[in-house]
Structures are given as C-alpha cells and as structure tokens.
Design a protein around this nucleic acid. Sequence first.
DNA 1: TAACAACAGTCCCGAA
DNA 2: TTCGGGACTGTT
Length: 778
Amino acid sequence: MTRFFLVDIHYTIEAGKAILRLYGRDGKGKPVTLKDENFEPYFYVVCDDPAGLEDLKEDDFHVTKVEKEEKLLLEKPVTAYKVYVNLPTAVPVLRELAKDIGQTLEDDVLFARRYLIDKGLTPLDLVEAEVEGDSIKTIKAETGTYTPKGLAFDIETYTPPDRKEIDYDNPIIMIAVYAPDYQKVLTWKKAKGAEVLDSEKAMLERFVDVVKAYDPDILTGYASDGFDLPYLLARCKKLKVPLALGKDGSSVITKGRSRQEARITGIAHVDLYKFIRRVLGRTMKTQSFSLNNVSQELLGEKKQEVDLDNIGSAWDAGKIDEFVEYNLQDTKLTYNLMLKVWPSLLEMTKIVGLPLFDASRLSFSQFVEWYMMKKAFSMNELFPAKPGYREQTRRMGQRAQGGYVYEPEPGVYDNIAVYDYRSLYPSIIVSHNISPGTVNCECCKGKIPEHDMHFCKKKQGFVSGVIKELLDYRTTIKKQSQKNKDVVLEARAYALKVLLNSFYGYLGFAMARWYSTQCVEAITAYARHYVKDVIAKAEKQGFAVRYGDTDSCMLELGKKTEKDAKKFLQLVNKGLADPMELELEDVFPAGIWVATKGTAQGAKKRYALLDKEGNLKIRGFESVRRNAAVIARKTQQELLMIVLKDRDKEKAVKLVKDTVDKLRKNELPIEDVVITTQVQKTTDKYESVGPHVAAAKLMENKGRTVKKGTIVAYIVKKGEGKIRDRVQLAEDARQGEYDGEYYITNSLVPAVENILSVLGVSPESITEATQQTTLAGF
DNA sequence: TAACAACAGTCCCGAA
DNA sequence: TTCGGGACTGTT
Ligand SMILES: Nc1ncnc2c1ncn2[C@H]1C[C@H](O)[C@@H](COP(=O)(O)OP(=O)(O)OP(=O)(O)O)O1
Ligand SMILES: [Mg+2]
C-alpha cells in the first residue's frame, strides 16, 4: 500500500500498450513514481444498432471491446456503446470511422485526464494505491494536506547593447534558482556570490544537476513558458546538453507558437506570469505585467532596479556582480508570488481535478468545462460534444439581456446602506434549479419572470446540482473570510466567485459543451426581478433608493438608522429561498453620484462612497482608469475626498483652480501628464488610429516590439491638428513639452466638472477665473 | 492577449 | 461642425 500526493501524470506507449505514470511525493517527502498498465482508452457511440463497432480498425488501431451502457445525455436517458480501443492515439482515428455508425462522444478527452476523472483522483491531494513493485493494482482518492515543494528559477541572457529582440544565438549568461532553503546563482564569468562555471555549456549541465538534486515538485518561473524554458531548450540543443529535467530523464517539451507552454514530465511547471495575467489580470491595477510591477502590487515588494539594457556591455566588461543579486532577487520574487497565489491555485487545482501544470494554464471556460466533465462522469452524464464551427457562429449571433442598472439622481448623499446579493447568479441557478435538462419539464408548471418558461421542481438538474456544491463551499469560505478579516480566505472566496459566475457565462459561451440560451435568459430575468424587488421593497419602507446595479441596492438612510437598515435586510431575506441571500455590505457615511457628460441624467457605473474609516471606494471614475491622465486621476480623487469628507466647497474649488493653473504654467512634471493605454491589436489592424496607436507606432519606429496587450505610455504635446499627431512617448518627453490646454480641456475639466456641478459650481468659473488671474499677473 | 456573460461611460477619429 | 462608431476600460 502506497499513499502519496499526486503531482503529475503522464503516459507513454511501450510495446504497443499505453502506460500511465503517476508522479508524486509521500508523507515523508520521498518521491514516488508508479505506473498503471491497466487503464484502457475508450470513447462512446450513441446509436440504435452497434453493428460494426467491434470491427473498426485502421493501421495498428483497433477496437478491443464494446460495452452497452445506459447513460444520460443533457439529463435525458440514452443507450450508449462504450468503445474500448488499443491505444489512446487510436481514439481520434477510430472515432472518425465510428461516425458512420452513430454519434461519437467523449472522443476528445486526453488520456491522462481521462484516467484522473475515471479514477476520481485529485492532484495535490492524497491517493492510495495497492501496488506490486511499482505497478498499480488498485488506486483510490484520499484526503490530506499537501505542502508544496517548489523551486523558482530565472535566466539572464546576453543581449548586445544595440539589440533588444530575443535571439537564441545569444548565450545564457546566468541562471538563478530559489527556494527558502536553497539558493544558487550559476554563471560562467567571475562574479561575486555565484558559482562560476567554465562555459555556458557547463553552466547548463550544472543547472540540470542542481534542479535534479533539489528534486522539486513544482518548478516555477515568470514568463517561463514563453521565454526561459524555450530559451534554455534552444541553447541546450545548440550546445548538445540534454535539458533532462523530467523525472523519467526526458527533456523539457515545448508546445505551440502563439501560446507556448513548456512541460516537464513528473514536475509541475508553473508559469506565474501566465497564471497571474489570466486569473488576476483583469482586476489588477498594474500598468504592466512585469515581474517588478506585479510583485509591487501583489507583494508590496519592489526589487532593486537594474538596467538590463546594459547587461551585454557589463558582461563584456566582466562586471556582473550586480546581476547576480538581481537574478536571485527575481527568483525570490517569483517564489514569493507563488506562495501568494498558492492558496487560490491549490484550491482551483483540487476543484478541477487536473494536474497543477494544466490547472495553472486553464482559461475560465476550460476550468468550468473540466469541472463539469468531472462531475458528469460521477453522475453518469455523457459529455456533450463541442459545437462545430457553424453552430458556434449561430450562437455568436445570439445575445441575452443582462443585468438591470438603476439610473441614479446626481447628488451628494449621507448614510448610504449598500446591499448586495451573495453570489447572485449562482444562487439563482441553485434555488430555481436552472439546468439545460430542467427547462420546461413535463412534470411541473410555473412561469419565470419575463419569459414563458419554467424549470423542474422535482428532479435535481445537472448544472444546478454541480453549482450547488461549489456555491455552498464558497459561502463557507466567504463567511469565514468576513468573520476573521482574513485576506488569504478573501482571495480564495474571490477566486471561487469568479469561477461560479463563469458557470453562468459558460452557459452563454459560444464554444461551450453545455450551452443554453434558455438558462441564460432565465438567470438574468430572475436577477432583474430580484434586484427590482429589493428596490420596490425599499421604496415601500420609505427608503430613498440612490443606486443599484445588477444585484446591489444602495439606500440613503435619511432619518432611518443602521438598525433599520439591518431590519430591512431581514425583511428581504425572509422572502428569499435558500441559498439566496442579500448581504448588507456596509453603511457609508457619504456618497456621490454625478451626471453623464453633457446631460443632466445620472451616470451609471460611476460613483464614490466614503467609508467609516475615511477611505474612498471609487467606481468607474477617471481616478480608477489607467487611460486617464495622471493629473486628472489624482485631482479627481482629491476632489472626491474634499467633497465627501471635508465637505469644503472652497477647498474643492481651490484645488481645481490651482491644478488648472499649474497645467497652464507648465509647472507639472511629465509623470503627471502621462496617459497609459493598452493596444488590443497589432498597430496595423486599426480602423481608426487614436493617440495611443500613434504612440505605439512611435515605439515601433524606435525598434521596440509592440504586441497585443502592450501598454503604451504617452503625453500630448503642444501643436496643431489631431491629437494623434501630437503624441510623444512618455519616456522621451521633455520637461514642459506637454500641452497644458489640452490637459485642462480634455482631461482635467471633464474629470471634475460633473463633481463640481453637484456642488453648484460651474466649470467655466474655474477655468475663466484662472485665466483672469493669469492675465492679471501680466 | 483567444475563447464566461452583459451593461455602460468617455475619448477621439472619420465620414458626412 | 455634427454625429455615429471604434476603441478602451471599468462594473456587475
Ligand atoms: N465576471 C463575471 N462574469 C459573469 N457574470 C458576472 C461577473 N461578475 C459579475 N457577474 C454577475 C453575476 C453575479 O452574481 C452578479 C453580481 O456581481 P457581484 O455582486 O460582483 O458578485 P456576486 O454576487 O456573484 O458575489 P458577491 O456579491 O458575493 O461577492 O453579476
Ligand atoms: Mg453580489
């Protein structure tokens, strides 16, 4: 009997047979490798007459047996034939032949993943195997707490002083690895603090040895899928060094060109850049996803800045001491980032049940889909086929209505109670049993809001059942995080929230296996119903409704107290079916809503609240937008603080006037007028060329690569004509080069005018008055 | 930086 | 000069 934490799984074909190898570590920290030779690949065929299935064959591929099974497809019973084949690689071949006989299903499930699903094993959790030698006889899942054994690494490459592109002809000059109990920097020129090897080749060989000796479960880098490992591989190939990091002695394997990934057999390679960018990217404030910026935001740690542009000349001059420090520092940051995201990453890996390598690279849709597939197996549901191209296009044209947003009345208000449904869409799915298989059942009647549709009340739906489990779990975590004010739990609750909301999105996602417009329509119709219901109830109770968006409702308490606010919460919750629940997030001493530009109408998705500790919670305003000029963002934020906290109109006016003045007199440093904007396509693809695209082209002219996602920092210069003809890269901007008038009219004034007008101050008075003082100065 | 969804504000370009 | 739409970013 062997018990161990499962880290990775991989299969090979030996003597015409698929052999799975499971890699992991036992409770004492000893590495474990076991093989399973008794798992057979298969797919399903749904048909009336299975004749001919057993005889399918092509080349070396053939069917080994066929079993009849009663399964469910989209929650309806079907008879399916389970077609076993001799090799995993036979599946994509024989399924094509089987298409003449019936509908093939589950014919695109990777073999190792199939194994994990069928055996119910969870990576990074315990498994228990009965073995003979190193061969698995039986295997089952257990539970235990895994402690990660990780190693971070980073390479530095030689770059000639005048070049910046990646060129595999340039050598790797340094490699660092970091774990709390082990650090090393390798290089091949004399340097303080490093182990100095004779040559690049020797260094690469040593690197392989170092990693093997440390024997990590997890090897982590920052952008290591796209840079470090492909680079290492290229240099190793050139110098004839096997990059044999695999636990079976195999080399690192890279895959894909646009979306590269580097796999190491038996070790979970985690590219933190990829994971952070995809999972946290949307919510991060950072200007770029450089290791430094990301560490700054996530860890509050900044590494020493070293000018890497000089690494080539420094190397040539043999002055590389500072790069040793720098290289190690990078790996330390990478390691700490790993620790930071570990609770969420571990959570997601265990939930989805795929190896860490795969789990850390999943998109949200893949995540949802693999989770559903895992659950489907245990509930005897067949995995529906992925939609074909035509079906995808058809779905693309469909659009379901979304959430309701209440139009606010511009103004400053006191004592705002903020209510918000906990996991609204997921809780609707669960409480109303929304699932493709429960739509308009024969056995029940009823009608959902806005649509002639109902959902079964008797039979548990597949999707609703799957989400219920996760939702209950998230609720526990969220409550714990609130109770203990624990940021780690909060991060986990957040990851789970996004995941849960992705189930709703997934049901309306064109490429989904489980796709249902009806479900999507139902979910959002219920959501609109529930948020409007709170609004109506609040009004009935005499509250002034100030705002609401999708699942939230903000009430001005007026003469009412916080106790009344809590009573109202009870009232609403009494009318809600489990697991739906409205939460009272907080009562804020003050809040402001403004008009949309050029109208008197209240702007949605733009407001600010002052909390009891005196902090601002700003939503939608320029101050939280990276593509607004820094000066506009700063001034607006200060202004909001003055308006909500100091309540000082004079001070507010003065702030803006002073800022206008400084802009006019060109007194502000360049950093204050920088605008950062992302290019979402390559620069040649633009129909309309805006300032940031013009700036991106300036970068390209300087020989810099601009890719999708590059964030461009620029300023607007004085001059005539279009704004795009007046941009200058922030890095090249000279002091005083910016156009103060542009920033006043197009940036600062728009950001503050609707706030000032709530106070009854007209923007003209601000700019005019300054003009007068300026003139008076002459 | 392909791939969970919809709703919404603002800036600037480009056609009329 | 006006106005619609492309582009980007944020909120839920
Ligand atoms: N990223 C998203 N994808 C799809 N739907 C979303 C997303 N974000 C929000 N929604 C929808 C579904 C949510 O239930 C609803 C309300 O959003 P929100 O209040 O932010 O989250 P939530 O209600 O799910 O969690 P909680 O309020 O407990 O943090 O809006
Ligand atoms: Mg909510």
